[in-house]
């Protein structure tokens, strides 16, 4: 694995204890230019991790706290009248950055979410009559609280589909929590340094893109996605009644990119089924829509994906 990746992880580890899967997921998003959705209950260092990562990358970073009264112009920008020049001038919103942290995205109403969705897809912002292209790299890291909590709007499926990965953040282990408590009480947290330049990041992306994916692995990935749409064809009758809609074609596209990054992070220059398995849940868990029966019986998309991975023949 690249020394640069190690360096980034080391810098992030200065302020974040554990959460390796979340950090790997964020790096995959960075290397593949995919947007990331992070879900977890409050207090699990979601925002801290994203902020630490941006600082270690030396990229432009802006954070928007989504609230129910947020307006699209609050994130995109707006035309403002300049009385001195008797003219309108553009005030760019926080979306004009490299790494946008949309904190608690599901607290904003659908109007704002849709505005962000357009930016994520087009990487372009239109204010008034003028369009602005966002300077690469641009990717959105959004955090959200579980929808069961009060005062949140569930993200629409179309927007969820635009997130490459959905990372579920869980509690730290007891050992990690002990370390966190010790660090905070002893005030031993350190300053994060930028350890990579834009040019080096571009090189890393090129390297990841060059990771070899065997044709069998490519077929395997397509089979996995297909199995979520037609489980009975893969003798997965037991989960067929729980799936309303399977994974979209965007999953296949993102999977082809993400598995390369996963293999790279694991120190390899070729992809194996294990790499696919490592990232499959994060790729598909927010893109499979379950039936009412599944929700009633407490079946999660993660369990569905596990069954699919166990059932589809491994090359």
């Amino acid at each position: 694995m690249s020394k640069k990746i190690d360096a980034i992880k080391s810098e992030v580890a200065k302020v974040v204890v554990g959460h390796e899967k979340m950090i790997d997921g964020l790096l995959i998003g960075l290397l593949c230019e995919g947007h990331i959705l992070i879900e977890g209950i409050p207090g699990l260092a979601k925002t801290t991790t994203v902020k630490a990562l941006s600082e270690s990358l030396g990229l432009g970073f802006k954070r928007v706290q989504f609230t129910p009264d947020l307006l699209p112009s609050d994130i995109l920008g707006a035309e403002i009248y300049d009385p001195q020049n008797n003219d309108f001038k553009i005030k760019q919103g926080p979306v004009f950055t490299n790494l946008l942290l949309a904190d608690e995205i599901n607290r904003a109403p659908a109007k704002v979410q849709s505005a962000l969705l357009e930016v994520m897809q087009e990487r372009q912002v239109t204010i008034g009559d003028e369009s602005f292209s966002l300077e690469p790299p641009f990717f959105v890291m959004a955090t959200q609280n579980p929808v069961e909590q009060e005062g949140v709007y569930q993200l629409p499926e179309a927007q969820l589909d635009r997130f490459m990965l959905k990372l579920n953040v869980e509690y730290n282990t007891k050992k990690e929590e002990l370390e966190i408590a010790r660090r905070i009480s002893n005030k031993t947290s350190q300053t994060i340094q930028a350890v990579i330049t834009h040019a080096e990041l571009d090189v890393l992306k090129d390297t990841v893109a060059a990771v070899h994916v065997d044709e069998e692995i490519e077929h395997y990935m397509i089979e996995l996605v297909s199995a979520t749409r037609d489980p009975k064809a893969y003798k997965l009758d037991e989960i067929a009644e729980y799936i309303q809609f399977g994974a979209s074609p965007r999953v296949s596209i993102d999977m082809f990119k993400a598995v390369k990054a996963m293999a790279y992070l694991r120190g390899k220059d070729f992809v194996t089924p294990v790499d696919v398995a490592y990232i499959a849940k994060e790729l598909m868990r927010h893109r499979i829509i379950l039936t009412y029966e599944a929700e009633a019986e407490g079946i999660t998309t993660d369990e569905i994906i596990e069954k699919v991975l166990e059932a589809v023949a491994i090359p």
Binding site: P273, V274, A277, Y278, E306, L309, E310, I314
Partner: peptide, 9 residues
């Protein structure tokens, strides 16, 4: 391979 898959999952 199947064992590796189980362990990953």
């Amino acid at each position: 391979k199947a064992l590796a898959m189980v362990l990953v999952l």
